[in-house]
Design a protein around this nucleic acid. Sequence first.
DNA 1: CTCATTTGCATAGCTTGCTATTTAAATCCA
DNA 2: TGGATTTAAATAGCAAGCTATGCAAATGAG
Lengths: 147, 147
Amino acid sequence: MQMSYVRETSAGYLTNWAARLFARAIERRLAGGNSGPMPVFFALQDGGAMTQKALAQLAAVEQPTMANTLNRMERDGLVLRTPDPNDRRSAQVSLTPLGRERAKAAFVSAIEVNRIATDALKPEEREVFYDMLRRIIGALERDAGTE
Amino acid sequence: MQMSYVRETSAGYLTNWAARLFARAIERRLAGGNSGPMPVFFALQDGGAMTQKALAQLAAVEQPTMANTLNRMERDGLVLRTPDPNDRRSAQVSLTPLGRERAKAAFVSAIEVNRIATDALKPEEREVFYDMLRRIIGALERDAGTE
DNA sequence: CTCATTTGCATAGCTTGCTATTTAAATCCA
DNA sequence: TGGATTTAAATAGCAAGCTATGCAAATGAG
């Protein structure tokens, strides 16, 4: 039956499934928090500030996606948008004290979930897994670039 | 800097990134089509019919998610819901001729993208990669089960 | 200096995913 | 048999992702 082929050896299917499980596992631990702000937390945790564009690039999402994420985070008091005096189109985004607090909690949860997941791998397999994923990401980004 | 730690060795981050790239790569090839119906296509491609619940379980998504996907597919003329005479709460879902046509195209695209992605791995690594992903999925499902 | 182009964000509108809740049919048990 | 429970699906409402498009500020070319 084709379905078993797909379920077992479709990299896209398995990757999507794993990604949803990762997100839900983190969200279950955050009690009300979501996993969307995670890349922003990681980028700004040390007190730095950067533009929406830079955040989108770090998070590897499109600009409107990051705009929406930052809107929700601003609404929830997690980030601050400070107008850039040198470029009136742009703003520097930084974490509020509440944002830094949430970032720490999110970091703890992410590390715990990462450990639970990679405990399913032998220690010597873990770096291999990351490397394989990075190579697959590279191949798909190259494919996207050469439409 | 913590960000590079996250980008390079957070399994959740890398998995989410790869999953989005897979979906976009398939969608780019489908010209207007989306990747959401894929699990339904795979499950019903041979002319079979099953309930929404069974489809949700095969696709590993929640029931309302599958309900929405089937609503869109029904709207687009891809599936048919046939009321079950033995259980008036339930319907058997099957592909229309157009649905089977789209399923074939989606299958071709999925296989091509899968090939492009796994070409980044050595042949002997591919089964290892699937196996690792399956083990990680198992670990995260166990974690979800034991809240 | 002015106008065309580029750039940074915002907005609109869609899909896919989730949780929580509701509705109605089927089933179970006393 | 009749009420309680379970089950299948629908609905509401939100997050996070995308593409396409619009707008205003900055930049560059003549």
